[in-house]
Design a binder for these strands. Structure first.
Length: 268
DNA sequence: ATGGTGGTGAAACCA
């Protein structure tokens, strides 16, 4: 039985609604996790997604900033949760539970703080917030609930491996690729018994990017990307991974997000 | 070393 899960930092769900609709029509994942919806809950365009068959929708939004949403063609159980990280009420996490065949799966959708420009928490509180957020994510285990498999997706705003950035050396002091962040995220991964599905499918040294800055003159020619978006799962699901696709073409669509969708397909 | 672009929501803040 196939299962496909997609994640996409959309950078305003209302502005880019036509792009999300196009993606859902053409790629039709079972579930799509969005980040940076930048949309208050009461203004979320539910009807547009319901019309495309995504009738099971959970949202965790706020005005102006952040925000995550999970759109599903599969029924969701009444077990969704919105966790508070660092005691700050930003809309950065949402998890849902669904059944697939004999399995029960909890799917976490994260938007990790970007962390500002200066990689020093003594002068940049946003970087401190990011490090604290990652520290708190270490409490999240892939086998947290008996009999429940786990998937974790989202914009984690960290490119953990050498070949997750266009130049390891030039980015070592750039927020998203500093050692304290990459070691922190690696520790969240291994400590929680998670499997990095993108790297299981395409190991290093192949370059993998999911984000290209808006500020480049020609993002495609420069190709200075980073792998900021991730799909992880518990080992039982990883054993049934079929494919992972990074939809690079979406970066070239009309008025694009700076992130592209990532889609994992399982054969369960 | 610097500034480059884009979103929200109407100025400053964030990515």
């Amino acid at each position: 039985m196939p299962l496909s899960i997609a994640t996409w930092n959309i950078n305003s769900v209302r502005l880019r609604l036509p792009l999300v609709e196009h993606f859902l029509k053409s790629w039709a994942p079972d579930i799509l996790c969005l980040q940076e919806t930048k949309c208050p809950n009461e203004l979320f365009p539910r009807e547009a997604f319901e019309a495309l068959g995504y009738r099971h929708i959970e949202i965790h939004g706020q005005k102006g900033y952040h925000g995550v949403a999970t759109l599903s063609r599969l029924p969701l159980q009444e077990l969704s949760e919105r966790r508070l990280y660092c005691g700050i009420s930003d809309a950065r996490h949402l998890s849902v539970v669904f059944s697939h065949g004999a399995r029960t799966i909890r799917l976490h959708n994260f938007y990790v703080p970007a962390g500002g420009d200066e990689p020093d928490r003594t002068i940049n509180v946003k970087f401190g917030h990011k490090l604290d957020f990652i520290e708190e994510m270490k409490l999240l285990h892939a086998e947290a609930e008996a009999g429940v498999s786990s998937i974790l997706v989202g914009d984690l705003n960290i490119a953990p491996l050498e070949h997750d950035v266009w130049s390891h050396k030039q980015l070592l002091k750039i927020v998203s690729h500093t050692p304290i962040e990459t070691e922190g995220l690696t520790s969240v991964l291994s400590g929680g018994s998670w499997v990095d599905l993108m790297r299981q499918h395409k190991p290093e040294p192949e370059k993998l990017y999911t984000w290209w800055s808006y500020r480049a003159r020609d993002w495609q020619a420069a190709d200075r990307g980073r792998r900021l978006d991730h799909i992880w799962s518990s080992a039982d699901l990883a054993a049934h991974l079929n494919h992972v696709e990074i939809l690079k073409e979406a970066r070239g669509w009309e008025r694009p997000s700076d992130h592209v969708p990532v889609i994992a397909t399982f054969d369960l």
